[in-house]
């Protein structure tokens, strides 16, 4: 095993990790207790592993951990908690957009990346940006409702 150390900012805190050169970011995250990031396909085709790297949503099942070296990574654990949920989390919960919830962290992260860049995201923006997130439970209707309610274009805040 060729463990090497990398350092990156994880949820606003600079942290160092010993990694194997061929481990993916999701493996690193999950084995270090960041289990909110889910593995649904391991091939970049479902979006449940989405995390934000340098402001953009990526598939943590694809990105190698070493590629995160020196970058800024945000996971669902850094986004909100019971006493301070992110508006997206509140909106998803209230809209009935969380059924099994397995897709939810990925959807929250992908939508957050969009809203961070474009607080007044339109329905078309959400459709384009969320095109990598599968949800088998909800049929997306309530998800769309929840996301749109967080755009400043509809009076939401994010």
């Amino acid at each position: 095993m060729n463990m090497k150390t990398i350092t990156f900012t994880l949820n606003r805190k600079e942290q160092s990790f010993d990694i194997e050169p061929d481990e993916t970011l999701i493996d690193l995250l999950r084995r270090t207790g960041h289990t909110g990031t889910k593995l649904g396909c391991d091939t970049g085709m479902c979006g449940s592993c989405a995390v934000i790297v340098d402001g953009r949503a990526i598939n943590a099942c694809i990105l190698f951990a070493f590629q995160a070296n020196g970058r800024t990574v945000e996971t669902i654990e850094g986004v909100g908690d019971f006493d301070s949920p992110h508006p997206l989390q509140t909106a998803m919960a209230d809209a009935g957009a969380v059924q099994c919830g397995f897709c939810t962290p990925g959807i929250v992260m992908t939508a957050k990346a969009l809203l961070d860049e474009k607080p007044d995201a339109s329905e078309e923006d959400f459709k384009l940006h969320l095109d990598g997130n599968l949800c088998r439970c909800t049929g997306y209707v309530k998800i769309k409702e929840a996301l749109l309610s967080c755009s400043s274009a509809t009076g939401g805040e994010s």
Binding site: R30, T35, G36, T37, K38, L39, T75, I76, E77, V79, G80, D81, F82, P85, L88, Q89, T90, M92, A93, D94, G96, V98, C100, G101, F102, T104, P105, V108
Partner: peptide, 18 residues
């Protein structure tokens, strides 16, 4: 609100793999 919705939206450990 569905009783577990916020727990899941926050990404708290919930599923077998977690």
């Amino acid at each position: 609100r569905k009783i577990d919705a916020m727990t899941l939206a926050l990404g708290k450990p919930s599923y077998v793999g977690d």
